[in-house]
Amino acid sequence: MITIPYLTALTTYFSYGLLFAFGQFREFFRKIFDWWRGNNLQGYAPICLGLEDFYIRRLYLRVQDCFGRPICSPPDAWFDVVERLSNDNNKTLKRTTKVSRCLNLGSYNYLGFAASDEYCTPRVIESLKKYSASTCSARVDGGTTSIHMELEECVANFVGKPAAIVTGMGYVTNSAILPVLIGKGGLIISDSLNHNSIVNGARGSGATIRVFQHNTPSHLEKVLREHIAEGQPRTHRPWKKIIVIVEGIYSMEGELCQLPEIVAICKKYKVYVYLDEAHSIGAVGKSGRGVCELLGVDTADVDIMMGTFTKSFGSCGGYIAGSKELIEYLKYSCPAHLYATSISPPAAQQIISAIKVILGEDGTSRGQNFDYQNSLLVSSL
């Protein structure tokens, strides 16, 4: 975890405070002029209200050029950024022909697979020629090809589970699958710093949600013991299902999950463990197989293993790995599988090829030479 110096934090808050004060001063006169000119919304409600509108106009627009800059090269460790100009105080930005070479610190590209690769790229191009750019269909209709079946088998073998299901978007993997796994009468106990996709998925499930202090197994046990004893609200009936949700590496803090202790507590109280390895799969462990390999946890003790392909594998989408019964159930009930367009064949081939490189199945030792432990630093940036 990176600690911020007090002077840096104080000067940052002071700058925001100064901008806020001057912005409010200007807002006062703006309201007077708007009242004098009359309302020009013609009966429509304003799209942005309150502090949201104030933040966009008085704070964000002043620094808008620092965000969303277009790039004109592959998103490798270094890339080319197009410079922009504004003649109206950043309300509109115009592209120029000038390009700046920048160090890429805003990418998930932990192992470098997002750039052109000697092994992956030719195979992706071949899959593009064979399967086209997209299936344009959900998995249950015309969206399942032989390459999708190969990908799911490859992922299951890589993470050490009997079966896996893949989706076209990492965020949706959590937000769409959690409501299928648990519902009303169930209890979700979530780490207080879990990702927003987990938060939204838990809220959409209808289950009761409780949080425990970030990465604190002792507090998790306390929460579990109390809620198992109390049962469901009002009726005090036993919970239909209890799931504990943690992340392998917490993306904003760069901290490793205390997985062995958490798994031991979950086994003690006979509750399910849901492990989000979006930032850890491919990035840590002796052979890149994630926190279970790194911390010596048997994957059989983790009931549901989730991960994404956008970080270490240079592609898109996500996966759920677990028992064959679980994956079969998800294929019949998960909205991300039933209704969403399947992951594109070239993206699927990129993942398969990247896994083969990591495992050394490409005929080289590149996978063994990856510094997986230092990928922790990358994931914390």
Rank of each mutant, 00 (worst) to 15 (best):
S146Y: 09
G112C: 02
R37L: 01
C48M: 15
F79H: 03
L49A: 12
G17I: 02
F20C: 06
E118T: 09
A21C: 11
Q64Y: 05
D117W: 02
I147M: 03
E27V: 11
R69F: 03
G23V: 01
L93R: 09
T92M: 11
E52I: 05
N89D: 07
F79M: 03
C66G: 07
G50M: 08
A115C: 08
V140W: 07
T135V: 02
S107W: 08
P74E: 12
S146A: 14
K94V: 14
K129H: 01
N39A: 05
A114L: 15
I125P: 04
C48A: 14
I71T: 15
T121A: 08
R123F: 04
F33I: 14
E83F: 07
N90E: 14
R139C: 07
R30K: 11
L18E: 05
P74K: 13
S146I: 07
F79D: 02
S137E: 09
D76L: 08
I32Q: 00
V63W: 11
S100T: 15
R84M: 10
V81H: 07
D88F: 11
E126I: 02
E52W: 03
V99Y: 05
I32H: 01
D88C: 08
R101H: 05
L18Q: 00
Y110V: 15
K91Y: 10
S15W: 11
S15I: 07
Q64R: 15
Y60N: 11
T96D: 01
N104H: 02
E150P: 00
E27F: 09
T144S: 12
F79Q: 04
A21Q: 14
A77N: 12
I47K: 06
N87S: 14
L61V: 10
L18R: 05
L18D: 00
P75T: 04
S100K: 11
D34R: 03
I147H: 01
G50N: 13
D80N: 07
S86Y: 04
I147R: 00
V99E: 00
G68V: 09
E126W: 03
I56G: 06
V99S: 07
K91C: 08
L103N: 13
R69A: 07
Q24W: 10
F28D: 12
I32T: 05
I125D: 06
M149K: 10
C102P: 03
L51H: 13
E52S: 10
E83Q: 10
A115K: 04
R95H: 04
S116A: 12
I47A: 12
Y110K: 08
G38Q: 06
G17S: 03
